[in-house]
């Protein structure tokens, strides 16, 4: 069997590693590219396991502490696996004034998820996000790529039940 230079990780397939190598190769000559590399690698794998961050550090020739420092600083990056559906609840001021707090609590209670966490069956990840700028629709919830406006705590569960 050919020597595989990639670390072993159950969530990262051989194809994914190939794409990751390509991303690192493109960004390697550019200064200050950690954020871009992390973003694209997270798009490939879905999150950033420690093994992947170490690999990126080696590839870009920067200390792994730098990679971890950047990944832990920005809200976009997650080091935990995500659920099948990502529920992003807008925590902007307009949404807050119009009752998003109650919506958030309702979802958390119904599916037993903490804010920022994933349900045990990995069905939903619940994220409180910063203002999505769609204040005209407040309160707003985005499930995967579908935006829902005027979401209320009584109707929200019905919407989510459409996502298995």
């Amino acid at each position: 069997m050919a020597y595989d230079p990639h670390p072993h990780h159950p969530d990262i397939t051989f194809e994914m590693w190939t794409r990751i190598d390509e991303i690192i190769r493109i960004y390697r000559p550019k200064a200050g590219s950690i954020i871009s590399v992390l973003r694209e690698c997270q798009d490939v794998v879905g999150y950033l396991p420690v093994e992947l961050m170490d690999y990126i550090g080696q590839g870009l020739n920067v200390p792994r502490s730098d990679v971890y420092g950047v990944a832990s600083f920005y809200a976009l990056f997650s080091m935990e696996p995500k659920g099948r559906h990502t529920v992003r609840v807008c925590m902007g001021t307009a949404c807050y004034v119009k009752g998003i707090k109650e919506v958030m609590r309702r979802i958390g209670r119904e599916f037993n998820i903490e804010e920022g966490g994933t349900s045990e069956d990995r069905r939903f990840s619940l994220e409180a996000v910063r203002c999505l700028g769609a204040c005209g629709l407040a309160p707003v919830m985005v499930v995967d790529h579908d935006t829902y406006g005027d979401v209320k705590s009584d109707g929200v569960i019905k919407i989510l039940n459409n996502y298995e």
Partner: peptide, 8 residues
């Protein structure tokens, strides 16, 4: 980087 909530 329009970060203020309620600003679009």
């Amino acid at each position: 980087d329009e970060g203020d909530p309620g600003a679009f």
